[in-house]
Amino acid sequence: MTRQNRRILVNKVVMALSTAAAVAGLIFLFWIIGVLFYKGFGALNLDIFTYDMAPPGREPSGLRNALVGQLLLVLGASFIGVPVGILAGTYLSEYGGKKSRLARLIRDISDIMMSTPSIVIGAFVYAVLVEPFGHFSGWAGIAALAVIMVPIVLRTTDDMLQLVPGSLREAAAALGAPKYKVILQVVFRGAKAGILTGVLLSVARVAGETAPLLFTSFSNNFFSTDLDRPIASLTVTMFNYATSPYEEWIDRGWAAALILALFVLGANIAGRMIVRRKR
């Protein structure tokens, strides 16, 4: 075999292998998505949205309390995490700049916090907000999700604000605007779409978290909006139902999984579309 033929052959083999790897990986991923949609849509019905969780065998029953609990937890975490993240990100971009040691340290710490195991954050919040009070509570769940949310919002806000051209800031400052007005009325306006995308992605991320809720908000079989008590969530209910021996609970776990996945995917797609339209 000539040298040239061998080179062409090696090239073909490697390219075939990488195509095969891509196809194999995609098959597994789409298998999972297929199962999720097949089982999820099979178990989905109107009762799920209108009735609360019930012991196996008792009909009608659904997931209404878990859906409401999930909504409260994610909204609560967003009310804390979004403003804190945006303001902290504003500091890094507008007051910290590239040279500030403090700003660089906070950026690095946030990067690490984004990948910190969420179950460790759950244990931390348990020690701070559950154990001293002697009971699980919705507030503890909200706190755990907010701790996960802040670094994500912070980093995207920081990145997005830095994309706003410096000349815009200078133009506003030259007109005599004080710095806070420059930030609130010029810089924020320029980075609006990017910040909104960051917020949507962070909401999607915390909505899918189970581990930090297991021993903070725990679960509740009854309808409750009292955040001072344990509260049901879709994810913890999925965990409890999937490990139960009851066929109908397992099916309902798949329905919960589908609702959750559709929400998370929807938020991700919306976030991407906002950025794309802006461009």
Partner: peptide, 14 residues
């Protein structure tokens, strides 16, 4: 990129 956003508990159930 979208698959990376699917909550990990769904992979566990599968």
């Amino acid at each position: 990129e979208l698959l990376a956003a699917i909550p990990s508990i769904i992979y566990g159930m599968w």
